[in-house]
Design a protein around this nucleic acid. Structure first.
Length: 645
RNA sequence: GCCGUUGUAGCUCAGUGGUAGAGCACUUCCUUGGUAAGGAAGAGGUCGUGAGUUCAAUUCUCAUCAACGGCUCCA
């Protein structure tokens, strides 16, 4: 007998060789039906794998991440079986589970697959699922496995085998499909009741664009049709929040073929939001001791050779213009210009920290396939500033920047984000990163300490740093799940040296400053894209392009309506009167659709009492106020930048 | 840049080898209406662009541009 201990602390005895499934059955049939995979001594095991020694045991169901991962991993195998049936002789790379669903990377050889094929594949998968084929685990010796795939001519699995140790190699077979696989898997294919293959994509082998491109098929499966339907419905709902859709519906921005891809034309409504954001940034930065500067959008080639950007980023800059034998580049970043401003006049320690800010316009030639609404564009307006400081001042300055982020996030009600400490990758020193290993470690530790001392939760990621230093990135996810850096706070120990920047210290000696690059509000493009999705288009009053819409019941009340409007305009409120000869129901409907925060309804009653009836967007009628009271309230709401009434 | 998909009116979309249609929006008229769509009439498109096949192309083929779903990239 062996002792099995359970998560609740209980220990029970079972016969040697019993499986997790049998143990589940011994507890209850209901549990056994739900169990997908087992955790044996914190390793994930097949439920039918014999347990031969004392261990701790957890039983995972669909409701556990382990259950879902296994379910989707098995689904990838099921899809591979269907693909192999439809396209015999194709070769498979890997087919992992994702946060939502799974994919498999396939080398189709000369064959092509189109979206029409997906329906066939789904059909085949359903057919195979219904066969309740058991996933059979087989351990093989490495040379045996190599022989198997050599005979098959499968260079992909042979490549995988290279990195596996002998003695740890397992194969899984379900139905007619056998794959090299660590496992584990669901008990049998019949668990998969609902299948949707989502899309086809090219994916470079091992994620390297120099490698061959494989075909990747994405799919998702569920234990019930209902859950699949709900998932697909959720995707549809997410699309309604997509900033590209809202940006069009709310007339925020547009693009034009003749202007060019990735070049945003801000419509009047979007421009109002831009100006409100700039107002906020200017107030905040002025209070924090920043000075404002203005610099040109382009510079001669040499500036970017000095900064070191050109060798790293030439491909993502617009091609240079040649004038009078000089090459001029549209700038992809503002920092070199700012460094020249720092250097324009001699600095002493008394001038430090020296903080200069600018909403800088930059141009980046993003690859055509990378453009994405407002989130990835080719002309962007950055909430940029550079802080030149002494080493002693660094921690305090860096922390002040982080605090500024948090202040902004509070204003916008941003709580779903991840702070990422982006570090260098030692293997890419000299290629992607300035070759100063000690300065890297030193500044990374500085930044880490600031985060720790501020009690800000963060994750560390290697290989995401800027070429000139480590940074903190604020990661967010768009409505459809793409990840973006919203804001960034970076240390730079490289450019001060390259630009020979210095200040005079107390001992009358030149010293090299540190630089902080920071953009808490990111770029207008990305930030407004994010805000559109964050608020689902329902901007708080201070940001709403139109804050109040006055809706007269009939044109008998137009004069009074315009009096109210003029009072509001004088108070600095953005207001319009709906003067059309439409019924009030229609005027309300259209104001609701355009997401105006306040609707003022004006008719006989209001006019005689010198009042207004107030309707809040998506909340309905909230009663009457005198015009003066309403003006006081809304002006306070706007000036406090309240995010919820 | 690469793989796949799409491109018809301002928007959302239907449709056809014989030079186009709906709903909403827009304009005009009627209606003066109390918290999410009152009625009628009208105007609006060389079907992304270029070439080819054909007696004839918006429809088929190719190229190209752009957008979308991914990959790669993201200072």
């Amino acid at each position: 007998m062996i002792n099995i201990s359970f998560p609740d602390g209980a220990v029970r005895q079972y016969a040697v060789g019993i499986s997790a499934m049998d143990i589940a059955k011994s507890i209850s049939e209901g549990l056994a039906k739900k169990v997908i995979v087992a955790g044996v001594n914190n390793q994930i095991w097949d439920t039918n794998r014999p347990i031969t020694a004392d261990c701790s045991l957890k039983l995972f169901t669909w409701n556990d991440a382990e259950g879902k991962n296994t379910f989707w991993h098995s689904s990838a195998h099921l899809m591979a079986e269907a693909i192999e049936a439809k396209f015999p002789g194709v070769k498979f790379w890997v087919g992992p589970p994702l946060d939502n669903g799974f994919y498999y990377d396939i080398d189709l050889g000369d064959r092509k697959i189109t979206e029409d094929d997906l329906t066939d594949l789904e059909k085949k998968m359903n057919e195979l699922a219904k066969q309740n084929n058991v996933f059979i685990r087989a351990e093989k010796a490495k040379d045996e496995a190599i022989a198997y795939f050599t005979e098959k001519g499968d260079e992909y699995k042979l490549d995988l085998l290279q990195n596996l140790e002998d003695g740890n190699i397992t194969f899984y077979t379900q139905g007619n499909f056998t794959d090299l696989c660590r496992g584990p898997h669901i008990p049998h294919t019949g668990y998969i009741k609902a299948i949707k293959l989502l899309n086809i994509a090219g994916a470079y082998w091992k994620g390297d664009e120099k490698n061959k491109q494989l075909t990747r098929i994405y799919g998702i499966t569920f234990p019930t049709q209902k859950e699949l339907d709900e998932y697909l419905h959720m995707l549809e709902e997410a699309k309604k929040r997509d900033h590209r859709k809202l940006g069009k519906e709310l007339s925020i921005y547009t693009m034009n073929d003749e202007v060019g891809p990735g070049l945003i034309l801000w419509l009047p409504n979007g421009t109002i939001i831009i100006e409100e954001l700039e107002k906020l940034a200017k107030e905040t930065e002025e209070a924090a001791g920043y000075k404002r500067v203005v610099t040109p959008h382009l510079a001669k080639e040499n500036l970017y050779l000095t900064s070191g950007h050109l060798p790293y980023y030439a491909d993502s800059m617009f091609a240079p213009m040649e004038m009078d034998g000089e090459k001029y580049y549209l700038r992809a970043m503002n920092c070199p210009h700012h460094h020249k401003i720092f250097d324009a006049e001699p600095k002493s320690y008394r001038d430090m920290p020296y903080r200069i800010a600018e909403y800088g316009t930059c141009y980046r030639y993003e690859q055509s396939g990378e453009l994405f609404g407002l989130m990835r564009v080719r002309c962007l307006h950055m909430n940029d500033a550079h802080i030149y400081c002494t080493k002693e001042q660094f921690a305090q300055e860096f922390k002040a920047v982080n605090d500024m982020y948090l202040k902004y996030f509070k204003i916008f009600g941003i709580d779903k984000y991840v702070m990422r400490l982006s570090l260098h990758d030692p293997e890419k020193l000299g290629q992607k990163y300035i070759n100063e290993p000690e300065l890297w470690l030193e500044t990374e530790e500085l930044v880490r300490n600031v985060l720790k001392e501020s009690n800000i939760p963060f994750v560390e990621v290697k290989g995401e740093g800027a070429f000139y230093g480590p940074k903190i990135d604020v990661q967010i996810w768009s409505a459809i799940g793409r990840e973006f850096t919203l804001a960034t706070n970076q240390v730079d120990f490289a450019q001060p040296r390259r630009f020979k920047l210095s200040y005079t210290n107390q001992n009358n000696e030149p010293e090299i400053p540190l630089i902080i690059h920071r953009a808490p509000l990111g770029t207008h493009e990305r930030f407004i894209g994010f805000l559109l999705e964050h608020y689902a288009g329902k901007f708080p009053t201070w940001l709403a392009p139109l804050q109040v819409k006055i809706l007269p019941i009939s044109d008998k009340f137009l004069t009074y309506a315009n009096d109210v409007k003029n009072t509001l305009v004088k108070a600095g409120v953005r207001v319009e009167v709906d003067e059309r000869q439409e019924k009030i129901g229609k005027k309300i409907r259209e104001a609701e659709i355009s997401k105006v925060p306040y609707m003022l309804i004006i008719g006989e009653k209001e006019m005689t009492e010198n009042k207004i009836s107030i309707r809040r967007h998506s909340k309905g009628d909230v009663g009457q106020l005198s015009v003066d009271e309403f003006v006081l309230n809304i002006v306070a709401e706007i000036s406090n930048r309240k995010s919820e009434e």
